[in-house]
């Protein structure tokens, strides 16, 4: 489904992605984790070309996404992207946020688009907020609306860039459950996150990144039980709370 081969990228003199090669299968749920500054977010952003790459190749559904025949806007509408900061459109209601793409990209009539949007908002448990503006929603509700906005285009792939990092702790659970519900429907999901409990339970595979390289790839089970790379072991011990469980 998503094939990266020898992907490299610099930000100025900083080598943020170093020769990354990885394949994500259709229907797979992949979690990318690693210390901050390791290139996880940049990597996930290259998959829908929010970030351009210096060299290498990225293929989605077998097509080179930098190829000459690629219509970038149409390509992007087939990939859902969820941001850390939600990025809902503040001047539009929840419903309008979700009908924007179907109306202007698929040419759906307002009525049909609205129906479609309500359906996904219901799935995300925020249909009762359809008429509200984003500013009146909690962070967790905003993020679920942002997921609904992406889902409305029925993309076969969803990318999540630290979807819970900007949330207060009590709202993390509701968003993770919403993402988990998608995993069960056979969607291809790639999620950058620090939520290791979520990774363990939902991910098929975990990729560990540091300094722009993927240092470890393992099933969720093996990743936590037998981390191989020393950097992985250090990371797993670092993210454990020094105060233990309560």
């Amino acid at each position: 489904m998503i094939e990266l081969s020898h992907v490299s990228k610099h930000f100025g003199s900083h080598h943020v992605l170093r020769d990354i090669t990885e394949t994500i299968e259709r229907g797979e749920v992949v979690v990318i984790c690693g210390p901050s500054g390791s290139g996880k977010s940049t990597l996930i952003r290259t998959i829908n070309r929010l970030e351009e790459i210096d060299s290498g190749q990225i293929r989605v559904d077998g097509r080179d996404i930098h190829g000459p025949g690629v219509q970038i806007d149409r390509f992007r509408s087939g990939i859902g992207f969820v941001f850390q900061q939600f990025n809902l459109f503040p001047h539009l209601t929840v419903l309008e946020n979700c009908t924007l793409a179907p109306v202007h990209l698929q040419g759906l009539e307002q009525g049909n688009a609205r129906q479609k949007a309500i359906t996904v908002l219901e799935r995300m448990g925020v249909a009762d907020k359809a008429g509200a503006y984003p500013a009146h929603l909690s962070g967790g509700q905003q993020q679920r609306v942002a997921i609904a906005r992406a889902l409305v285009m029925e993309p076969p792939v969803m990318l999540f860039d630290e979807p819970t990092s900007a949330l207060d702790p009590e709202m993390i659970g509701e968003v993770l459950l919403a993402i988990k519900s998608l995993a069960h429907q056979g969607m291809t999901l790639v999620c950058v996150t620090h939520e290791m409990g979520f990774a363990r339970e939902v991910a098929d595979r975990i990729l560990f990144m540091a300094d722009g390289s993927i240092l470890e790839r393992a099933s969720a089970e093996d990743f936590f039980a037998h981390p191989e790379h020393p950097r992985t072991r250090k990371f797993l011990s670092d993210i454990r709370s020094p105060f233990g469980r309560y």
């Binding site: 087939g78 793409a101 990209l105």
Partner: peptide, 21 residues
Amino acid sequence: PRGQTEAARSLGLNYGQTLRR
């Protein structure tokens, strides 16, 4: 904010639609 443009472009809106809407 830049995130507004990124969100619109990631939905598949083109440059003109993103500006206008």
